[in-house]
Design a binder for these strands. Sequence first.
DNA 1: AATAAAATATCTATCACTAGATAGATAGTC
DNA 2: GACTATCTATCTAGTGATAGATATTTTATT
Lengths: 187, 187
Amino acid sequence: MKDTKVDTKSKIMDVAEAFISQGGYGAFSFRDIAESVGIKSASVHYHFPTKGDLVAAVMARYTHAFSLMLPDPCDAEFSTKDLIHGFIDGFKAKVVDQMNMSLCTMLTSDKSSLPEAVCQELAIFYKLKLDWLTQVFMRIEQTDEEKALTKASQLLACLHGASILVQGANDPAFFDRALSHWRNAYN
Amino acid sequence: MKDTKVDTKSKIMDVAEAFISQGGYGAFSFRDIAESVGIKSASVHYHFPTKGDLVAAVMARYTHAFSLMLPDPCDAEFSTKDLIHGFIDGFKAKVVDQMNMSLCTMLTSDKSSLPEAVCQELAIFYKLKLDWLTQVFMRIEQTDEEKALTKASQLLACLHGASILVQGANDPAFFDRALSHWRNAYN
DNA sequence: AATAAAATATCTATCACTAGATAGATAGTC
DNA sequence: GACTATCTATCTAGTGATAGATATTTTATT
C-alpha cells in the first residue's frame, strides 16, 4: 500500500474504465491497458487474474462511488427538484461532456458476452439506481411504491436512451431534448 | 437467382442479424455464421468481402424493411394514437417477445468499433425514425417542427432506454413500465 | 442440340495477427 | 527469507481475410 507512486492497481482500473466507456467490454485488451499504464500485460494479470475480475472490480468501484454521490432521498435539506436534477446532471456529465456512454449502458449492451461476476455487479448498480429513484418519487408524489417504481423506470429509461441517441445521432443536443420533459416537470 | 434453395446470401444476412441482436458487432465471427448457415467461412467472404460489408448490408435491409412497415404519418386513415402505439409495439416485439435488443440499439453501443459503412447505415436509420416520429407529432400537436422533434427524441430515447433496462434488470416487465406514460398520453 | 466459355458458388488450406492467460525469472522491500 | 510487483517469453485459441482449386450453372457459339 504505497502512495507516492499512485497505486498501479487504481491506475489500471482508471484506464479500464475509460476503455469500457468508450467501446465496451470487448473493445480493449490487457495489452491496451498495459500500454496506457506503462507496464506489461502480464503485470495487469498479476493485479486482476482475469478480464472478468478486472471489469467486475471497475464496476463495483463505480457503483460505490456513485452511491456516495447520492444524497439520502428523504433528507429534507434537498428539494426533490434538486435530487432529480442532480441525478440527471450526473448522467449528462458522462454522456455530453465526455461524449461517451456510462459504464452501465455500455456493459448492459455487452451483457451476452460478460462473465457472470460482471453481470452481478451490473445488477447491483441497476438496483441501486432504481431503489433511489423510487424513494425520491415516493416523496414527491406521495404515492405507493408501485407507481414510484414506474416513474423511476421511465426516467432511467430516458437517461439510458438519451445516451444511445446522442451516440447514434452523433449530436450531444439530443440529451437535453430527450430529458426536457423531466427537467420541466420538476422545476 | 435460384429459389428452390433459399438464397444463401439472405440466409447469411438472417443469421448475422440474429447474432447482432444477441450480442452486437463483436459477438460473432465469419465462422459462427458459416456454421449456422451450413457452409464454410470462406464462402461467407464470397458474398460479403468484409465484416463491414455484411453488417452494413444487414442494417440497410433492416432499415428498408422498417420503412415499409411505417404508414404515411399524414394518412388520415390511421389515427395518431394508432401510429404511436404501432411504433411502440414494433419495438416491443423485439425487446420483450424476443428478449433481445434492436439491431440499432446494439450497433450504436458498438459504434466506436464499427466500420464507417455501418455507421452510415445506422445514421440513415436514426434519421428515418426521427423524421417519421417528428411528422406524427406535428400532426398531433399542431405545433412547429422544433417541438415535434423534441417529442420524437423523447419517445425514441424512452424506447431505446427501455430495451437497455429490460436487459439490465433482466425483466421484460420494465418495457411496459418505461413506456406507460406514452401509452396513456395517446389513448 | 451439342459444346465451349464464362460466371457463380463453394471448397481446402493457410496467413498474419490479436486475444486472454500462464510459467518462471528477477528485482526491490519488509 | 518471504512478499510484492514487475518482467520476458510463450501457449493456445480464435479472428478477418486471401489464394487457389473445384464443382455447378448460365450463356454464347457453332
